[in-house]
Write a protein that binds this DNA or RNA. Structure first.
Lengths: 335, 335
DNA sequence: CATGAAAATTGGAACGATCCAAAAGATCGA
DNA sequence: TCGATCTTTTGGATCGTTCCAATTTTCATG
């Protein structure tokens, strides 16, 4: 196996200097088109592969963006990751996707590895818990970092935060349920100490208060399995409950399955609304009402903000909220 | 913002030479423990960050593994990606995850970017179609590459292939349905020209032939949406069909929802089996029978094979098959 | 044809680690 | 105390690019 060709080899072959080759590589307009073609031909003939490590060492960027997600198995995040990766790839950046699995120690380790690799920027939906070990090294290295969907570090001048306007969404959903004549609305799933839960609860509580209704809370994980379990518990412990707003679609879909097991007709006996509006909502039976957060658009906006930061030094505002809206379907409206 | 400290700075601070610092960095046993601690203290005090680009340039490995998946939105692949990433992270490798979205041109571009970044190895579940543009550069660069779950390049001496023993799994599932007294079993979803479909079809066809039964084929996409559609079509066009083996769980879950819409009782009127046994199978209503492919274990085995290749030059066998087994649940057994 | 300005090209010093060969120190038996 | 041997430490060349300053080429104009 022979050595990979370098720009020096290309230069020799094309009969120019390596500086010229470098210029061509960067698409500089100051090299004559004719010469540039000569160089490009030489590259093709030699099977030249650009060596980013060398370029990086000399001082240019790595072309790598780190993405750290707290739960990559959640389709909502998967969609975010996939869309973000596509948008960044279009701008020539590769994406290192990592799953912290809600483990702050692992998250800090992953972040260390990313910084070593010299990522140009980081997008992080942080694990819940101690965040210093993750964010301090980023601050020290001065790496542009965006917190998305969850805020764990308050230095939003360093780490701008962007998310959805969850409080409005949950208020809208709750009012929708109240308008349908429900009497007792539960909020199911999500841990109370987490910021997303708090935001979603806030809108729910506010809407209930407007109507003079009492909240009913079933905290828990944010998985399908918990939804299944919650369906059983809510029937056993709160027989008067006739509607549920779920932390997310996974919980709602779990409840949907659980309520079917219990013989409950979703849409009339019990009205159900999820959060996120993942693709499956329109495909379930009955179809699941959900507060739609257009994650693909959000991902593209995130990519745009990041690219603006990287290319023009345009620091995004400390906090941004994307609009959400309720998509009513059979699970709340009935058939 | 001041310059990041380098090993030279660390060396100065610790009062040793930069060679010694480098040795410490690599955990060499030939540096005295006392000296090593001195160096480590200096690193801590200066907030030293290892510069992989420089190391890579000089000739060592990048510590990066590329993962290219044809459909990252499929939970089966997500689980694979997440598990693989965890296993590789434990061995000190970062993972660049990319989604080719079943687009060979994009896939080739992503691969080019990965090679530029100097990935030490690649794991790829290739998009269907022209594969040369993806694999040739890998062969040229001599990068250890594993094809998983799908084979698009026949040079298995260069690109070993590992997957599940799908044919056995679908035969077992089909025999199970036959044993339950079904008369007409459809195979739903998957494109006939793809290798995975062919393998899964092979076991199904063989088992049907044993029983002297006729196949019934509904090819199509491998999504929940197609399953939903397929349920409608199968009822309308093949009223005698009383069982379906689906290409994967997503199709089966889509059918489950679609059949529920049609008022069909799954488990008695129609028996249903999926493929992959994703988590949701045990959480759906009715619970979905499925051919279990333990993807987390498969991911760990893949990581182990790759690490063996990277560290000991141990090239994996050209083709490997992991065992699968049917997990019968209510959707085929009834209640 | 000479001239100056603009355009295109080039040489060579960085960048920050690794790793070899060689130097310096430590340890030990005689 | 003196080599011999083994353990630690060290200079310095090297990897493949970028980028600055300097040089050469091109070209329009007087």
């Amino acid at each position: 196996m022979k050595r990979r060709p370098t720009i020096t080899d290309v230069a020799a072959r094309a009969g120019v200097s390596k500086s010229t080759v470098s210029l061509v590589l960067q698409g500089s307009p100051q090299v004559r088109a004719e010469t540039a073609n000569l160089v490009r031909d030489a590259m093709r003939e030699l099977g030249y592969v650009y060596n980013r490590a060398a370029a990086t060492l000399r001082g240019s960027s790595v072309g790598l963006v780190g993405l750290v997600i707290n739960d990559l198995r959640n389709p909502f995040f998967t969609e975010f990751a996939a869309s973000l990766q596509m948008a960044l790839a279009a701008a020539g950046y590769a994406t290192v996707i990592s799953n912290s699995d809600e483990n702050t120690a692992l998250q800090a380790k992953l972040m260390g590895s990313m910084i070593e690799h010299g990522v140009d920027a980081v997008v992080i939906c942080p694990a819940h818990g101690e965040a210093g070990a993750t964010f301090d090294p980023l601050a020290r290295a001065g790496i542009p970092t965006l917190q998305v969907l969850r805020k764990m570090d308050e230095r939003t001048d360093l780490f701008p935060f962007s998310s959805f306007d969850y409080a409005h969404g949950s208020a809208e959903a709750t009012r929708h349920l109240i308008g349908l004549g429900t009497r007792r609305i539960a909020f199911v799933g999500g841990q109370d100490e987490r910021s997303i839960t708090q935001e979603r609860m806030a809108g729910y509580s506010a809407a209930l208060a407007e109507a003079g209704m009492e909240p009913l809370r079933l905290p828990g994980r944010t998985s399908r399995a918990f939804g299944l379990e919650a369906a059983r518990r809510i029937r056993a412990e709160h027989p008067d409950c006739d509607a549920a707003l779920c932390f997310n679609d996974l919980v709602a879909l779990g409840m949907l399955a659980g309520l079917a097991r219990e013989g409950v007709v979703v849409g009339s006996d019990m009205r159900l609304i999820g959060f996120d509006d993942i693709e499956e909502c329109a495909l379930s039976w009955p179809q699941l009402s959900s507060v739609s957060c257009d994650i693909a658009v959000f991902a593209r906006d995130t990519a745009a903000a990041l690219l603006g930061w990287l290319s023009d030094g345009q620091i995004p505002p400390p906090e941004q909220r994307a609009a959400v809206h309720l998509v009513p379907r059979a699970s709340s409206l009935g058939n």
